[in-house]
Design a protein around this nucleic acid. Sequence first.
DNA 1: ATCAGTGCAAACCATTTGCACGCGA
DNA 2: TCGCGTGCAAATGGTTTGCACTGAT
Lengths: 144, 144
Amino acid sequence: MTKPKLGIQLKAKGYKLTQQRQQIMNFLQDSSLRLSAQDIHQQLKQQNSAISLDTVYRNLRLLTEIGIVGQISLPSGSVYERVEDQEHHHHLVCVDCEKVVCIAYCPEMKTYMAQAGAAGFDVIGHSFEIYGRCASCRHKYLHS
Amino acid sequence: MTKPKLGIQLKAKGYKLTQQRQQIMNFLQDSSLRLSAQDIHQQLKQQNSAISLDTVYRNLRLLTEIGIVGQISLPSGSVYERVEDQEHHHHLVCVDCEKVVCIAYCPEMKTYMAQAGAAGFDVIGHSFEIYGRCASCRHKYLHS
DNA sequence: ATCAGTGCAAACCATTTGCACGCGA
DNA sequence: TCGCGTGCAAATGGTTTGCACTGAT
């Protein structure tokens, strides 16, 4: 709504706004969920807008590189979410059920960024994920 | 720093202590780095202790399930580290030359871990990488 | 002696890529 | 029109699995 239109952001980087890219972003826009490439492909198919799986992958990759979406790696593959700079956050990832929970952004992260700057690094992005077992999986785990 | 012996931990869960498992753990023990299955396989091969890649995968999986090692998913695959390893550090990764620079462990990271605990999460491991361009690559980049 | 663990090769599955055609600017 | 973007199919690469053999207890 108040953030720059997708088309603008793409054009600024020299990319075209295609139907497929629009559809993918609409999808990530609507849902606050994190979706895999396959999820997106499936669901678009059910909306009668069949776009190829390759294209979904290609565009998720592009959108990730541009910084419009964020990629989260899981043992079974990656999931994606829309990035909003204002609401930057990180994740807890359950190694059993792969549930992903957001944790609040913590200003102390800046300590790391400062070190990066001191090392002469131009920071482009960063990833931070905590892996573990969620409460319910831990319960199952202890009883097996 | 005497933690339970590997053999004991395995036996407690009904698993055997095999040469291969011992070798893999020795490896993770020694190195403070996080290694991929392939890394471990390669390096063991160079030590004249050739164990099959499948076995490395199978055992890393087992050790992860038992909670002896932590698995970290990255887009290019998984890396593993010893769980008790509190003294690990994080990295700056140059997106151009792929140079990796270590940065010191920062106690503020505990703030995140605390949040994980509050969410009922059993922390097994975490991943934190800063992506950017190193000083020399930035120079080249600006002149291309 | 038994059965979990191993090696090998083949299978799997998410993701990437080469190529020819189609569509956005 | 021009060249990026797409679809298709085939390739890739990390990881898993079926099977027969080996080794730890």
